[in-house]
């Protein structure tokens, strides 16, 4: 039972943390729970499909299919998350001021909110596929039976969900006044981390050079495999031994999305009629 619980927990905290921040960031957006749930549904279904095609994906592109696939998933997620952050900034005030009336208009009039479905689905894909494969292995090898696997999966899943919920509640409580700003910057940093992870997959595929094999080493202070290390990996893209290329991707996304977010015509100024489309 326990190996299943451990591994499901390990895989699920990533998804849970992303959902935790996204839920806090989109507070006030009507229907966001449905969008997130739809994303989870698509993600779980996609996980099963990906798990089923693992053989084919692995063999594609000279055996580097998995790396390329993971990198592509990462970079699409980077695009979606950046879009979400910028979209929230331009609509934040409307949402905060007049939740129901304006919110409904925003939802029906702007298809951008469906990006949320994509964000959650993409966060679920990779880790979800791993859970499916692992569970399949456990059952197929006869090492554990259905009851053990189900119980373990449930425990790990609940544990992961608890972490995500804790982050969500913590954010609502700690950042009441500046919730939009705090969660937006958290998403920007998280997105930069994903870009770095994407770069690492491309390095693993032999597509990108490292530029520098190891710019620093903080593994003695915080190991990448520890619970805190994994959590920080998701939240801020922590990695104990970053390569030069990862730092390039990290800074590029942080600077570009951060700059757009900072200077884009945001919620404070009244919108000019022309710009309002």
């Amino acid at each position: 039972m326990f190996p299943t619980a451990t591994i499901v927990f390990r895989e699920i905290i990533e998804v849970a943390l992303v959902i935790g921040i996204v839920m806090a960031a989109t507070r006030g957006l009507p229907g966001r729970i449905h969008l997130v749930l739809a994303g989870l549904g698509v993600g779980i279904f996609g996980s099963a499909v990906i798990a089923f095609f693992t053989d084919a994906i692995s063999q594609a592109i000279d055996g580097m299919g998995q790396e390329i696939f993971n990198a592509v998933v990462m970079f699409i997620a980077v695009g979606f998350l950046s879009w979400t952050v910028i979209w929230m900034k331009t609509h934040g005030r409307q949402l905060a001021q007049n939740l129901k009336a304006v919110g409904a208009d925003v939802l029906t009039g702007d298809k951008s909110v469906y990006v949320l479905v994509g964000v959650v689905a993409l966060a679920t894909f990779r880790e979800g596929a791993e859970i499916v494969l692992f569970t399949y292995g456990m059952l197929a090898s006869g090492a554990y039976g259905w009851p053990d696997v189900l119980m373990g999966g449930l425990m790990g899943g609940l544990g992961g969900a608890a972490v995500g919920l804790a982050l969500y509640m913590g954010l609502l409580r700690a950042a009441q006044k500046h919730l939009f700003t705090v969660t937006s910057w958290m998403l920007i940093v998280l997105t930069a981390g994903m870009a770095a992870q994407g770069a690492n997959f491309l390095i693993a595929a032999g597509v990108l050079p490292t530029l520098h094999p190891q710019v620093w080493d903080t593994s003695a202070i915080l190991s990448g495999g520890s619970f805190l290390g994994e959590t920080m990996k998701v939240l801020v893209g922590y990695t104990p031994r970053p390569t030069g290329m990862e730092l390039v991707f990290y800074s590029a996304v942080l600077l570009s999305v951060g700059t757009i977010y900072k200077f884009i015509g945001g919620s404070k100024k009244p919108q000019a009629p022309v710009a309002a489309e």
Binding site: S58, E67, A129, E130, A204, S219, G224, G225, G229, R241
Partner: peptide
């Protein structure tokens, strides 16, 4: 985690 690779091997 140390040399940062992950790959599923069917």
């Amino acid at each position: 985690d140390d040399f940062r690779r992950e790959k599923i091997i069917p």
